[in-house]
């Protein structure tokens, strides 16, 4: 693997709620190499977004990083001060959210919004910043960027707004871009455009991307490596081809099977293979493996001992007793 840009070590993020302490992230270890796109995939409540928000230190006040390190450019972001984080956010690590309409300021022209980042972090003059903003808008495929500088967000389509968000993220040539469901709110033909753009940018700018999504297809077409999350833990990590060729964790296998196929024969009875049961309550997790209540291969050991993430092949790690060496 190439040199690491960021190393997340044993990250634990908990939330205080009326129902007790919810352990949203329970010991996540993840490295992202230079120029690498790592996909973080999981269903609602799996902890994928909380992991990303922990890296940016954007978790709400009820939440706290209780343990672990986030090593980035020689500093531990888990311990960084507010002032240090302000320097990192938007400059060294940028974030792209799902809904560009809510992350763009509706009363500011898009040119100003992109330029603001450049003025704040790079100290450019207003004129220089606007020129650079125009180039960035052009780079992310917005037609007639000079005219668009004066547009308000509501005058742009959803796809164009997401391009503006990407331009803003790229403004300071960050080391790492965290993209949290960047195409989930977009139509499928527009999603294809944005995924293409992300791939081009990774190639041209050499930045690393942490791509968070619930969509296995988006991961398959965009990521180099994938981490699958379930109940606050990474249950499987592999190169993207290896994961789709040979998924190992029963949850990964179940998840892939429950996605309807675009080709091949349909099942005679029109029924999809499902993962039975529901996601466990993160405030009252059972002893042992978190997936035990839904796993078709559950056995005695799963109920008492928690499996650890360990390498089965080089680069392919699984958290499951079935693959215990």
């Amino acid at each position: 693997m190439p040199e690491e840009v960021i190393s997340i070590r044993n990250l634990h993020t908990h939330f205080r709620t009326e129902d007790g302490v919810v352990k949203s992230v329970r010991g996540v270890d993840l490295d992202i190499g230079r120029g690498e796109v790592v996909g973080l995939v999981g269903e609602s409540g799996s902890g994928k977004s909380v992991t990303a928000h922990s890296v940016m230190r954007l978790i709400p006040p009820s939440g706290r990083i209780v343990e672990g390190q986030i090593l980035f450019e020689g500093a531990d972001l888990a311990q960084a001060s507010v002032r240090q984080m302000q320097k990192v956010r938007g400059d060294r690590i940028a974030m792209i959210f799902q809904e560009p309409m809510t992350s763009l300021n509706p009363v500011l022209r898009v040119g100003e919004q992109v330029a603001d980042v450049l003025r704040l972090h790079r100290g450019l003059s207003k004129r220089e910043a606007l020129d650079e903003a125009r180039d960035l808008l052009g780079r992310v495929g917005i037609p007639d960027p000079q005219a668009r500088l004066a547009s308000f967000p509501h005058e742009l389509s959803g796809g164009q707004r997401q391009r503006v968000m990407i331009a803003t993220a790229l403004a300071c040539r960050p080391q790492l871009i965290i993209a949290d469901e960047p195409t989930t709110a977009l139509d499928v033909t527009i999603q294809a455009q944005i995924l293409d753009l992300l791939r081009d940018l990774k190639r041209d700018f050499g930045c690393s991307v942490l791509l968070i999504t619930h969509d296995l297809g988006v991961i398959s077409e965009t990521a180099d490596r994938v981490a699958v999350m379930y109940a606050g833990q990474i249950v499987e990590v592999a190169e993207v081809a290896a994961l789709f060729d040979e998924p190992m964790h029963p949850y990964t296998i179940g998840l892939m099977r429950s996605v309807p196929r675009l080709d091949g024969d349909l099942p005679e009875d029109r029924l999809l293979p499902v993962i039975g049961g529901v996601v466990p309550n993160l405030a009252e997790l059972p002893a042992g493996c978190a997936f035990q209540t839904r796993c078709p291969h559950v056995h005695e050991r799963c109920r008492s001992q928690e499996p650890l993430l360990h390498a089965v092949h080089s680069g392919h790690q699984v958290r499951c007793w079935l693959h215990d060496a």
Partner: peptide, 22 residues
Amino acid sequence: LSAVPRLGPRKDGTRIVLKGDI
């Protein structure tokens, strides 16, 4: 159909990416 992300490698050739918005 071509724009739908595939699970695993694409078997049906290049993806068609339409330009422009609806």
